[in-house]
């Protein structure tokens, strides 16, 4: 470690604090909002002093929203469950399909391999709304509209290219001779893939899986068009808080806190795992 002067260190601390405040302020504000009633949130001037209430969370978890215009049923917890189900299944499927494909693209140069890989990436260029109209027509014919299977399939547009391209890079960084050394010792190609290549690309696979999970979780438009209320994830479900009697800011804030929590926990968990994998120096042969 190089020694730096006191001024430098103080300046660095101040700057870091400013940056952290800048980025964390909206999240903290939402957290505070989720413990306030709509009236407390909307008072002018805004104030930091309030008596925290758990009403918002209670309403979300029980599914009954009480507004000034009357009671309203919302399916927030079901939406949350849908989000978990859809994102998890989509990422697991994308990993099952994408990791072997990424390995193939990294290790074998076959006819049209680059073109196929690029075509898969190009799915990410297409504006979702452009894809959706023809897709919803096809889905109606196939009977896939408003099914989990249909949504998970469409989510592959988000998850698969991401996993394919990130993991491919990790596979390319592993010297093929590490696998060759294992293969020549009498182990089959398949065993080498699972015992050597996949563990070595582990941090990359985790990073790609995490990223695509977040992307799937945050998706709005696919589920909005292709799913009805009981299959919709939180991103779409949050629309329910725009009610006839105004926007329920308190509940929206609480819903955000609840819907951010799973991804946040997953990210924290995976981050520890990522660092562990990288500190083994596993990526560079």
């Amino acid at each position: 470690m190089e020694r730096s002067s006191i001024i430098e260190r103080v300046l660095r601390a101040v700057l870091l604090t400013l940056i952290v405040i800048f980025f964390l302020f909206p999240i903290v504000w939402i957290l505070l909002m989720s413990f306030q009633t709509n009236e407390q949130i909307l008072r002018i001037p805004p104030s930091l002093s309030f008596v925290p209430t758990l009403e918002n969370y209670k309403a979300l978890i029980s599914g009954h929203l009480l507004t000034s215009a009357g009671s309203l049923d919302i399916a927030f917890m079901r939406n949350l469950g849908n989000s978990v189900l859809l994102s998890t299944c989509a990422v697991v499927l994308a990993l099952i399909l994408g990791v072997p494909a990424a390995y193939a693209f990294a290790r074998f140069k076959f006819w049209l391999s680059e073109d196929i890989a690029f075509t898969l990436l190009s799915f990410r260029f297409a504006p979702p709304l452009l894809v959706l109209l023809p897709l919803s027509l096809y889905f109606q014919d196939l009977g896939l509209v408003d099914t989990y299977v249909g949504l998970i399939w469409v989510y592959q547009l988000i998850a698969l290219p991401l996993i394919l391209w990130i993991v491919r890079g990790y596979f390319e960084d592993i010297s093929p001779d590490i696998e060759n050394a294992y293969r020549i010792a009498g182990h089959s190609w398949l065993r080498t893939f699972f015992k050597i290549a996949v563990p070595l690309a582990g941090p990359g696979i985790a990073a790609a899986g995490l990223l695509s999970f977040i992307f799937c979780w945050n998706n709005f438009v696919f589920a909005l068009v292709l799913a009805s209320a009981d299959k919709q994830p939180v991103t779409v479900g949050a629309l329910a808080f725009v009610t006839a009697s105004g926007i329920q800011y308190g509940q929206v804030a609480a819903a955000i806190v609840l819907s951010v929590t799973p991804t946040l926990l997953l990210a924290l968990y995976a981050q520890r795992w990522l660092v562990e994998g990288l500190s083994l120096g596993a990526v560079k042969g």
Partner: peptide, 13 residues
Amino acid sequence: VAMAFEGYSLYPP
């Protein structure tokens, strides 16, 4: 066939 590789190719973990 047994082989020693130029880049060593030891398995890091």
